[in-house]
Write a protein that binds this DNA or RNA. Structure first.
Length: 264
DNA sequence: AACCTTCGCAACCGCAAGGAT
DNA sequence: CATCCTTGCGGTTGCGAAGGT
């Protein structure tokens, strides 16, 4: 894979780097170190511009670069840092020292961004996309949902269910969509919604578990207290990952009137 | 098998920031 | 202070590979 080799007006080579060019650049930097990128190509015997050499070194040749597929944890990190830093790829790359900004940018643009969109999340704001045509079932006052300190009777304590519920909470927290509609959105295409979710739920078992969770919600078999406790894990996750004092999504979740109507 | 589309990734370009003169 | 130069960044493009029809 690579670009066609060509020469610009000044006779400088463009396009794909050869193994020999790589070797020459590395040999030069190993001997003389990094310095004047403009003068470097000539000194290293390369017919390249300094910019091209710098890019090749930073994105491909320098030691310690991790290449290949991004792990789920790395993808989670990218999403997390992007939510905090935006398109500042160099800043994100500083938080992930083994990955280049170019690599991170490429992966975001070619994969993660689309995945978030498919999951109903705006990749720039990291908030649920509000569908204007969606019916809004409630705008009234909040129910009083009091967290219980007693142990839950819920059978859903796994990370996967909690994460999906957290996503549900995030969608609800927009307060622009009805609870029933949100449930339907996730239930109508569970495989798509779950597997492509930014939170990387991947197994069939997890998917079934999530479906079961929503069935319990539908049948009023799960209490608001249980939901509260289910959400405590992602709440902690948000706190540790983002260093937030208060999880706004969680607080908003407690204000959803329709939730109280459905589940109390 | 041929064609088309999508994906993944390396590399290019233009612009802005910051330092040197 | 103004101008020039270098470096670094982010957006975009080009191209082969992979997958789908």
């Amino acid at each position: 894979m690579g670009r066609t080799t060509w020469y610009d007006d000044e006779g400088l080579k463009k396009g794909e780097w050869t193994a020999e060019e790589d070797r020459m650049l590395v040999a030069y930097i190993n001997e003389y170190g990094l310095g004047d990128w403009r003068a470097m190509p000539k000194r290293a015997g390369l017919q390249r511009c300094g910019k091209s050499c710098r890019l090749r070194w930073l994105n491909y040749l320098r030691p310690g670069i991790k290449r290949g597929k991004f792990t789920p944890q790395e993808e989670k990190d990218i999403i997390k840092f992007h939510s905090l830093l935006g398109n500042r790829w160099a800043a994100i790359a500083k938080e992930m020292p083994n990955r280049t900004d170019n690599d991170i940018k490429n992966h975001w643009n070619s994969c993660l961004k689309k995945r978030l969109v498919r999951s109903g999340i705006d990749p720039m704001t990291h908030q649920p996309v509000v569908n204007v045509k969606a019916n809004s079932s409630s705008t009234t006052s909040s129910p009083t949902l009091t967290p219980s300190s007693s142990s839950t009777t819920s059978s859903f304590s796994s990370t996967s269910s909690s994460r999906l519920l957290n996503r549900l909470a995030a969608e609800i927290s927009s307060r622009k969509q009805g609870f029933d509609r949100i449930k339907n959105v996730i239930l109508s295409e569970p495989r798509q919604a779950v597997k492509e979710d930014a939170l990387m739920i991947s197994s069939k078992e997890e998917e079934e578990e999530v479906k079961g969770c929503f069935m319990e919600i539908d049948n009023n078999l799960i209490s608001t207290t249980s939901l509260y406790e289910l959400l405590s894990e992602p709440y902690d996750m948000y706190q540790s990952d983002f260093g937030l004092e208060v999880d706004d999504q969680f607080d908003l979740f407690l204000e959803i009137p329709s939730l109280g109507q459905d589940l109390s």
